[in-house]
Amino acid sequence: MEIVVLLKQVPATESIVRIADDGVSIKTDDIKWVINPYDELAVEEALRIKEAQGGKVTILSVGTDKTVEAIRTALAMGADEGVLINDPQTQGCDALGIARILAAVLKDIPYDLIIAGQRAVDDDNYQVGTAVAEFLSIPNISMVIKEEIADGKIKCHRSIEGGTVVLEAPLPVLFTTQRGLNEPRYASLPGIMKAKKKPLDTKTLADIGLDSSKVGDAITKINVMQLPPEREGGRIVEGETAQEKVTELVRALHEEAKVI
């Protein structure tokens, strides 16, 4: 089983995000960078499938020099190879642009299964995995919390509002992850040592046959970033007893805020 995991490096969710001077990106100096949490689920699931069925796990990412760390972490968890597309022209890409790059790389990598996070927790686009499947003309199943592979087919449990849907499709398939799929392992010390020697191929857009002057043309373009309106800390409802506080709270919710 040849499995490719689409991985993005993102700011850790505990990061405080500040807007950079250009107004359309964030300040990166104090950021702790991690594997996108949903992609971590993808790495873990790929490793479990490989352990059960044999095969190879390739990590594919579009990023910068820093992204090497994230790929090495995935290799330390147990993935076999990494491919990083590192080209300044990718900076201006929108989600479709990134998906187009990934699809172009995947023309030269064999795969039976592609696993991606449902979304990256920075851009929150929910777009790249699905778009890659569309560009490759393979089935896409999003928000997967359980999968079973047998006889060249995959059965996926999709988490939807208020329930679950089970779908089946012949491989190759791309699916995206939802929390609940698994608990990602930590990289072991021997894993970290081994990862240093695993192949990590870095390529530019030209290397994969894309015209770098066109790839960065976003059709969904960020004009400006703003911080959401700051919520004012409201009042602490005072009272001698819990009952007094609650009476006052319910009165305020009913009469002032008018939400109950």
């Binding site: 700011p11 969710t13 405080i16 995000v17 807007i19 359309v24 964030i26 927790v121 920075d122 851009d123 929150d124 059709i219 969904t220 373009k221 960020i222 004009n223 400006v224 970033m225 703003q226 911080l227 959401p228």
Partner: peptide, 20 residues
């Protein structure tokens, strides 16, 4: 067409322009 959408789980609101 300009859309406002949250990024970073709502830590940032961005205005995006759609072309095409």
């Amino acid at each position: 067409l300009i859309a406002t959408r949250p990024m970073y789980g709502g830590k940032i609101m961005s205005e995006v322009a759609l072309e095409g």
